[in-house]
Design a protein around this nucleic acid. Structure first.
Lengths: 200, 200
DNA sequence: CAACTTTACTGAGTCGACTCATAATTGAGT
DNA sequence: ACTCAATTATGAGTCGACTCAGTAAAGTTG
């Protein structure tokens, strides 16, 4: 998990600890039962905090899901970057980034759907929401890095193509938000589209 | 308003009447106060039915919004088709269809956002949901009809281009779901994109 | 360290979407 | 007209997300 925050007084440290307890509790419960079948009370109980305290760390249950998925997403992106580094073929390398990202949004299909819904329609001013958008851009940047290896692609072409791939990932996941598809099927579908777009 | 249902016994007629009362009540209240500031109780009261009865006509409050917006959407599409018929220029004609459709999803910006959210993430098996998807396809068909006037565009080209325009409308509205933009600004933006795509 | 300010925590309470057991209403069969 | 079996309506009740007034824990100052 990629932590970004800085430590200071006891207050800050306590806050950090609680945030992590909440994240862990929510992640486990969401993964096991699905977002809709977990109450905020249960999460609070598991995290050993008061029911109201939860809402000091995430304004809504939806934001809480963003919080949880973000931490999984950050891990997935790291994994994808590492995998891509050792793959010479550009299409393989892009796929290596795509797979874990798709995977972490499909641990529970309904959770993935709810996550995307929050991402698109939640309040973009909320901190966890901003984090989510940042991760999206970081994914795009990772893809662009891979694309730049192909010297037929200039800086601009790589950036645009990366955004297009990012859009395809998003649309593929959103369009299937209600449908049971395996991660492999989704990844293959995205890979096919990307294959068409890359220079031959 | 484009009604589709057939009349039969008293039972069916009563049902129809109630559905219309509900739709009218919800439409007024949503338009005046916004979806989030209207309770299902208020709607039931205004429609003069029991609180539970509402949920026999729409499984969730979200479905209720689809029900309402669909009837406005159907009107808007009719208006757009009529307007397009008298405009010789293809770009103007497409814009004539686009404008009322965008408009009816922006009467209240939050309603538009909630509508799109339901459309993408709601249960596609629900009847009102299917109606909404049908309207989207009908809009696409109306655009395709206009495009076919240009004889440089074959049947396939017109169909594909119509879908692309439909996608642009959707994405433009979704991407600005959280942002205050006037209808005119959105329409202009869409028109610009379409202008680029049409053959010159 | 005592007095005081600021920040964080708490859980009982609110509010509203949705359910469900019960009661009407309808239409078919006789 | 009179069963009787659907079908439809009802509203009190449930359940859970979120709030808020009161309390506790840091931090700060002299």
């Amino acid at each position: 998990m990629a932590s970004v925050t800085a430590p200071v007084g006891r207050r800050e440290r306590n806050k950090q600890v609680k945030l992590e307890r909440i994240t862990a509790a929510a992640r486990e419960l969401f993964a096991e039962h699905g977002v809709d079948d977990v109450t905020t009370q249960q999460i609070a109980e598991k995290a050993d905090i008061g029911a109201g305290t939860l809402f000091l760390y995430a304004k809504t249950k939806g934001e809480l899901l963003l919080l949880v998925q973000n931490s999984a997403y950050a891990d997935a992106l790291e994994e994808g970057r590492a995998g891509a580094a050792s793959l010479p073929d550009v299409l393989d390398a892009v796929t290596a980034i795509v797979r874990p990202v798709v995977h972490c949004n499909r641990i529970q299909i309904d959770n993935g759907r709810t996550y995307l819904r929050e991402l698109v329609f939640g309040d973009p001013e909320e901190p966890h929401h901003r984090d989510a958008l940042t991760l999206t851009l970081q994914t795009e940047a990772a893809v662009a890095d891979v694309l730049r290896r192909d010297d037929r692609l200039g800086e601009r072409e790589a950036a645009t193509l990366a955004r297009v791939i990012s859009a395809i990932m998003f649309v593929t996941m959103a369009a299937t938000a209600n449908i049971s598809r395996t991660v492999d099927e989704l990844v293959q579908e995205i890979r096919d589209h990307v294959g068409v777009l890359l220079p031959r």
